[in-house]
């Protein structure tokens, strides 16, 4: 039992220190390196718009509908 306890404590310490080591590694970067790394991040997550996620006031929805109508009119007149 004592062994298990010690092992669990070692694991906890290991995980905690591994996490802080990651941060320390970043701390040693200079601005140039850091900005290069940031700009290489591929930002691609796709989240689909869902009208049920949040209610929208009727007045705001009406504005959007009118805007879409204006866009559609422009598309139709182009054809």
């Amino acid at each position: 039992m004592r062994l298990i306890t010690i092992a669990a404590l070692c694991l906890a310490c290991g995980m905690a220190s591994a996490d802080s080591n990651d941060v320390v590694q970043v701390h040693t970067m200079d601005v140039k390196e850091r900005m290069q790394n940031l700009e290489l991040i591929n930002v691609t997550a796709e989240k689909t718009a869902d009208d049920d996620v949040a209610a929208l006031e009727a007045s705001l929805q009406a504005i959007i509908d009118e805007a879409e109508a204006a866009e559609n009119t422009a598309s139709d007149s182009e054809r």
Binding site: M1, I4, T5, A8, L9, L11, A12, A16, S20
Partner: peptide, 17 residues
Amino acid sequence: RGMRAILIALLLMVPAV
């Protein structure tokens, strides 16, 4: 006692994780 120690260790890990 052992289980209690494990629980405490896990609780201590929460802020780090």
